[in-house]
Structures are given as structure tokens and as C-alpha cells.
Design a protein around this nucleic acid. Structure first.
Lengths: 350, 350
DNA sequence: CTGAAAGCGCTTACAG
DNA sequence: CTGAAAGCGCTTACAG
């Protein structure tokens, strides 16, 4: 009776009936709502026939349990948060797509939180985001994932978290490592094979762990073949196109000038190529250029950029799987490692 | 007593006390929980002194009402969904930032849903997303915002929605128009002022309303000064860099060839410049090129691209404000219109 | 201006 | 394998 009244009030014109609840399913299936709850939660303690009957009713009414009610009873939400401060839009979107891949078919939703580590309210904003939404867990991406204050905050408020970073910074269950170092090593090998000896490096923002790892890998790779990264061939950039230009201008003034430049991301590598062109130098004839990331820009440059591909979407998938506890075996770990993509911006010493 | 037990169980080591509830605030403030609820919801029917006292306790415990409980009681969530299928990552991120701008300081959270209109499960996936999360409302962005099946779905399931599109496609309360046509007109005026007569257009995907509007505006602007867009100077692209190259290759073969090309987005304009350079033509001397969007790529090209700036973040802010009912007056409408940004890729007829 | 009761749609113990 | 009771943390009528 009360139901009828509710129906009358909630209906919004023809066709829209109010959303069915667990009680409707129970009534129509002739069972208690607890049994319906068991079916929803895939409990084994339901007779097969009973289950079938309930599932049929659920399908018929296209019933979906209310996530708020479920969350309230479970004392947790079905929301995972993505916390990012990366200025590379494509990275952010690829990461989101990976997270959504893993969440497809589950009851989880993806909530986003953009932040700025330099903001005075950075930590409070983040705390507010997590507290207000009662997140199930969060995924932290670089560079905010490198911030120990953030990790401490997660522990303090008891929030499950996964940090995506170039190298391990935390206990294994909180880490997804992208092993950027391996990418740097591959670049070194590649340039050495082409006979380069005077190689340069353009770093990202100082204090950025990823940039540091890319450089360390590069140096290790050079050392393995008896080469060295000279300090004067190292320039400090800021991940931007403009900073790539500026670093290249300084590098190209040196005598002898380097024959190859490895930039810590594609954006700066594009700046290096830009500056080289302005200086009348062609890649790869006069200067080999290699980037890191393999974003769209890499294929749009002329010549196309040799760079390190980073499987961001796969990494995102992995991060979400870790968080929501989906099996994560069976996938080739190789798919998650950075790999060198050789295009036309690198070649033999001219 | 029960509280104490719960405390013992939930506490996760030193420092983490269980989250306070409305009951804790009520008890510590010496009022009923209904009164606390009134404070939370900014009801005027609370004595000023009582309010102060309660607010102090709330601040002391840094209490935040549980969104799930609130949502359950209110019969709505505090989540708004962003539905997108745009392949331009920067557009997506800028839109998100705008939405987040408007939601900052509110209890709302932003949930994302990427989709593919070509997928057979497209509509069912979208329906599932909205039903499962019980969204407060959704923001639809191009091109999915142009899909009438989606609008029909929103109406069917009674979901509040706002469509961001180049032109009005729905009742005013459901529309945020970006007026792309005005951008096209501005490009036409700009090129006409430089004396161009043989102008070309590279369209986006066929059936895309935004591309159509940009073209219509372009044609209208040309007509206003007695010029015309000849059919043979129109090429159908697909919003990608590669399609820009292909369209330009076809255009540059024509005799006489056009002296200026307007591409429906920056990506294709970059392709046009690329093809022109390969053909030995310099911009703007031999060919003026204009894009649409003003994304990062525009400033990275050499010469830098003249293009139409689209205030995506401001549009996103507006969309979220509309949805959550925040005042939207007082903002200069001008800030939301496309504007021409003149750089070096366009110039007088060579 | 304030509060006691009932309810939102689920789940967790606890029984059987 | 199944269910009745109580509860998750809030809010909406309804009283006063």
C-alpha cells in the first residue's frame, strides 16, 4: 500500500517507474531480502534454483542495488580516486582509461582530483577530497605519488592507496613501479650502437624522481659500454617545450657540441629538435634526439621522434586491479615495462 | 557502550580514531541530531548561539557528514558524471579542471566515464554507469553530446544533464553552447583582411556538428565580404594529424592552389603545415594556415599557429555550475566565446 | 527555533 | 540453505 503511494509520487510521467529496491525483488521472488542480498553479493549459500529465480526477477526489472545504501551498510564506498598533478594531459587521460578498463563490469566508479603540490592548501584539499567522499582507495600518480607527505596522510586517515612511480618508494603493496631506469638504459645502448660518444641529457624538474631515474639508467647504460655522461652535457629543464629549447640552445653552443641528446620527456625533446632546426642543424644527421614517453607529439615531429614508450594505460589498469583486489596474475609483466621505439630522429654519428 | 566497542574494533593503531558521526556531534553539543543536521544543511532555523556551538564541535572533531548516508536519505548522490568521447586529451583534462573548479568547496565529486559511440554496448554502458552510481547529473561533451540517443536516454532514466555543444540542440536548461560558428567567422574575416581569395577548409569527422558549425561560420564570414568557399577547396578530414596531411596533399595539387587553409582543429592544421613543408611551401609566405582549439600544439609549431581559442575550462565551470545550481550570473559571457589568436602561421597573400 | 519517530536501501551478526 | 531483527548515518515529515 505504501509502495503504491510512493509509486504515484515518484513517477515522472509515462514510462518512468520508480527504481526497484531489494524489497521489490524479494517480494516478487518470494524470498527474504537477505537472500536477494546473498545473490547480489555472490554468496554460495543460495540454492541454485532460488538463485535462478531471483536473477530472473533482477534482470526483468533491471534492478541495480543502490551503491549508497550498500556503501552505508558496508561502511565503505565503491569509489576510487585518481589524484594527479601531471601537466601532460595525455598521460592523465591514458591513466584514467587504464583505471576504467579495470573497473569496467564492477560496481566501482572513478573520481578525479587534480592538485597542485605548490598550493598552500594542497594537503588539506586532498584530505577533504578523501574524507568527504569516503573513498575506497586512491591511485597516486607522479609527481604527487613521490610526495612522502601524501603517503603519510594516507596512512594517517587510513586510506588504501597505490603509488605509481618510477621506482619503489613504499611497501610493495602500495607500489606500482614503472621502471623508468630501464628506459634510460635502452636509450644509452641505442645511442652507443650508433657510435655516439658525446651524449647529452636534458632533465625534467629538479627533485622529480622519474627524471632522476631516467638519467641514472642512462648513465648506467653508458657506463656499461665504457661511456660517460659529462656534467657539462647535462642541462636542467622543466618538462616543457620551452625549457627543451633553452637547454638545447645551451648545449649547441658547447665545443665540441654533443652529437646526441636524450631528453627526459617528449615535450622537451621536441624543444630540442626545434632549437636544432633554428640553429640549422638537422636530426639525425647533425644531432640525434631521443625523448621519453611516446606521446602523440613523438609521431608528429619531423623527423619522427625516437623515444621510450611507457605503457601508461596498462599501468593504470594494474593500479586499479591492485586496489580493487582483482586477480592480476597471468598478465605479461613485460607489457608494463618501458620500451625503446626507434624512429627517425636518431641515427649514426654524422 | 556500543560506541566504545565500535571504537575498539575500528581503531587502526594509535592516532586513528573512528570517524565521528552526527550522533557524536549532537551529544557533544548537547542538542538533537536533527539540529546538527540543520547546521550541516545551512537551515536558517537554528539559534545563532546554538549554531556557533555546534560548528565549534564540528571543527574540533573535523567532522564531515557521510555522503553515502546523506545521499541515501536525500535519495540522490553528490556525484556528477563527465561523459566524454573526445580523443583530444587536453580538451578532456581542461573540461575536468573546469568542472572541478565549480565543484571546489562543495560536497560534489566528479566521476568520469569514457565512451565510444561506435561500440555496440555504448548506450548500455552509459545507462549502467548512470544507474549504478545514481548520479546527481551528468555533463555531456562533444561529440557524444550531439547524440540524440543519449539525450533520449537521459530523459528516459530521469537523469539531469547538460550538453556542451557548438550550437543549441536541446532546451536551454540542458545546453551550454560554445558558438563555434563565431570562431569560423573570425577566421574568414582575418584571412580576407590579408587579401586571401582562394581559401580552403579541412573538415573534421563527417556528421560532427562542431566541424559543421566551424565551416558554416567560415562560409558566412567569407560571404559577408563577397568571398566564397569553393567545393573543390573543401576536404574531409578526421580531426587527426595524418588526415590533415592527406587533405593538404590533395589541396596543394590543385591549380590554382589555395593561398590559405582553415582546418577544423589544431591537430589537422599541424598536419597541413607538415605537408606544406614537405612540399617545399613555407607558412605563411606560400600558404596561410589557421586552426581551431588553441591547444598546446599551436604554440609548438614553427611558425606558431594562428587559431581559434576555445575557453574549455570556463565552459566546464559553467556546465558544473548549471548542474549543481550555483549562481551563474555576473560572469562575462564574453569569456566563454571562441576568439581568434593571431600568430605567425597566417599572413598576407605571398 | 528544537526534537522524537520513522525511513532511505542495503548489510551484518545471529538464529534456525 | 534461509530469514527476522537491528543497524549503517543521515533526512523527511510531523509535532511542539
Amino acid at each position: 500500500m505504501a509502495k503504491q503511494v510512493a509509486r504515484g509520487r515518484d513517477g515522472q510521467g509515462a514510462g518512468t517507474s520508480p527504481r526497484p529496491t531489494i524489497n521489490d525483488i524479494a517480494r516478487l521472488s518470494g524470498v527474504s531480502k537477505k537472500t536477494v542480498s546473498r545473490v547480489i553479493n555472490a554468496s554460495p549459500y543460495v540454492q541454485n534454483e532460488t538463485r535462478k529465480r531471483i536473477e530472473a526477477v533482477i534482470a526483468e526489472l533491471s534492478y541495480a542495488p543502490d551503491p549508497q545504501a550498500r556503501g552505508l551498510a558496508f561502511r565503505r564506498s565503491f569509489l576510487i580516486g585518481l589524484v594527479y598533478d601531471n601537466s601532460n594531459a595525455q598521460y592523465v587521460v591514458n591513466m584514467q582509461l587504464g583505471l576504467l578498463d579495470a573497473m569496467a563490469g564492477t560496481d566501482f566508479g572513478l573520481l578525479v582530483h587534480a592538485c597542485d603540490r605548490a598550493s598552500p592548501s594542497f594537503l588539506e584539499d586532498l584530505r577533504g577530497f578523501i574524507k568527504k567522499q569516503r573513498l575506497f582507495g586512491v591511485v597516486l600518480t607522479p609527481s604527487v605519488s613521490e610526495d612522502e607527505r601524501v603517503a603519510a596522510l594516507m596512512v594517517e586517515i587510513g586510506c588504501t592507496y597505490v603509488r605509481v612511480a618510477s621506482v619503489s618508494l613504499d611497501e610493495p603493496q602500495h607500489m606500482i613501479e614503472t621502471h623508468d631506469r630501464l628506459g634510460g638504459e635502452a636509450v644509452a645502448r641505442h645511442l652507443a650502437e650508433f657510435g655516439h660518444q658525446r651524449v647529452a641529457f636534458v632533465s625534467g624538474l629538479p627533485g622529480c624522481r622519474a627524471s632522476h631515474e631516467r638519467r641514472e639508467g642512462f648513465e648506467a647504460g653508458l657506463a656499461a659500454v665504457g661511456l660517460e655522461l659529462e656534467p657539462r652535457y647535462c642541462q636542467e629543464g622543466a618538462y616543457t617545450f620551452e625549457s627543451g629549447i633553452e637547454c638545447a640552445e645551451r648545449l649547441l653552443k658547447l665545443k665540441p657540441r654533443p652529437t646526441a641528446v636524450f631528453a627526459a620527456n617528449d615535450e622537451m625533446a621536441a624543444g630540442v629538435m626545434h632549437a636544432a632546426r633554428l640553429a640549422g642543424l638537422g636530426a639525425p644527421k647533425d644531432l640525434s634526439v631521443v625523448g621519453f614517453g611516446d606521446f602523440e607529439i613523438a609521431r608528429r615531429l619531423l623527423p619522427r621522434l625516437t623515444t621510450v614508450h611507457t605503457p601508461t594505460r596498462a599501468i593504470g589498469r594494474l593500479a586499479a586491479e591492485r586496489l580493487i583486489g582483482v586477480a592480476d596474475e597471468g598478465r605479461e609483466p613485460k607489457d608494463r615495462l618501458p620500451t625503446l621505439v626507434v624512429r627517425e630522429s636518431s641515427g649514426p654519428v654524422g
